[in-house]
Design a binder for these strands. Structure first.
Lengths: 231, 231
DNA sequence: TGAACCTATTAACCTTTTTTAACTTTGAAA
DNA sequence: TTTCAAAGTTAAAAAAGGTTAATAGGTTCA
């Protein structure tokens, strides 16, 4: 399972360092910043699964930051930590769309549990390995590298399997092409991008016997893998 | 949208009554019980979307109850409310799989926000998926990327779809151009702004067959998408 | 070793979508 | 009424992706 990546904004250095170590100890990839400047750029360049924002930051406070972030990335989950412990503060935070609001001082174990709650909810499909899963009328098995349609078994290559796995993981939601390239080839060069195009073309062909399956192109962004009644 | 159904176990009658009224006022269907007996039967007979458990209950406490429930219904989300406010209690509750743990006394608005967080997270996709919506005499489907007028299906591009989605979301109210640019392109440069102008022009054309639909320009601000008799 | 085979990558050419550019119109402020 | 920025309109340019085929790279096995 891939490490979840957390963006953490906290200006208290001693606290930040403890939290960072704890999260890293649990296998998270942590990007820590003492202030909110250039946060949007950071989100663009790194793949981020969760944002943790302190509310009282120098200059731009956590609430303002959250608003900016969710404007551009409405599906990126975030939570607040804060010494502002009034009910009204908590409510303001939650209203902004925060998945949680932890009052300071918080217990580290509680933080971890709450993070796991958010992240696990956000990626419901996990262990695809060694399990056959249905894609419309097809049956896909990443371990066997097979795609079955009505008694016909098609043996897939490694990359075909890899790409279908990515599609399946993000079924009915958006796949960012750049992320796919990074995860599959390790870099997102122009030529890898063309390569992926070729594979998508091939996979579209493989899956063409069930018309309820579609790989929609989000030009300039990626793809959306749609499986379901299309009426 | 269907009413979400909540199972609520709380032995303090006066509190329970207030919470119940509040939840019902928000459109939830509430099943309240002062103790945990026969809860599993209740879950079998009614469809339940969320369980709220007080921790300190007579006989069987909330933790025990939660264990029993999640054994049989591992995907049914639950949260605790409790006057047991020790960190260790919270952690114990979360470890059992609770989606949240509210310390008493809690603010009712906070409760509502946290409930909404849990319930909306639990049904993230269906809502968007494959839902056609009427725009005057047109039918728009963001998922299929189609716009239908009297048997004629127009396939939309990704950006066209994106922009119409934004219009629809703010139907009959103001759309701030800057926000649209940020959400769609990630920045609000001059050239993206001209680009949006081009798309608005195109979409006005697409929607021109129903004269009750208008995209009014709010010069220097954005647009207002008006659908309805044009008094 | 090298021929047959399979997979991945690159290339070439085409189509569609998005962006940019250029020119026109509009509307608010001076 | 003049002026200028914002938005409308149209067309051309540029970029992304679709498609198909050729090439490269590596295994396997005689």
């Amino acid at each position: 399972m891939k490490k979840a990546s957390i963006l953490y904004v906290e200006d208290e250095i001693s606290l930040a360092s403890i939290v960072k170590d704890t999260l890293q100890g649990q296998g998270f990839l942590v990007h820590w910043y003492p202030h909110g400047q250039d946060i949007l750029t950071q989100i663009e360049t790194h793949h981020i699964d969760l944002v943790i924002l302190d509310v009282m930051l120098p200059k731009q406070n956590g609430f303002e930051l959250a608003e900016k972030i969710s404007l551009v990335h409405p599906d990126l989950p975030f939570l607040f930590t804060s010494a502002k412990n009034q009910s009204s503060d908590v409510i303001q935070g939650l209203k902004l769309g925060a998945k949680d609001y932890l009052k300071k001082p918080f217990n580290l174990e509680e933080l971890l549990l709450r993070i796991n709650n958010i992240i696990s909810l956000n990626q419901p499909l996990q262990a695809i390995q060694n399990k056959s899963i249905a894609i419309g009328q097809y049956i896909f098995n990443a371990f066997d590298q097979t795609l079955i349609f009505a008694d016909t078994v098609r043996n897939l290559t490694h990359l075909e399997t890899e790409i279908i796995s990515h599609l399946v993981k993000k079924i009915n939601s958006d796949l960012i092409k750049k992320n796919m390239l990074l995860q599959i080839w390790g870099d997102d060069t122009q030529s890898n991008s063309r390569n992926l195009d070729v594979y998508i073309n091939k996979i579209r062909d493989y899956l063409s016997q069930d018309s309820s399956i579609r790989i929609v192109t989000l030009r300039g962004k990626g793809y959306r893998f749609i499986v379901g009644p299309s009426e």
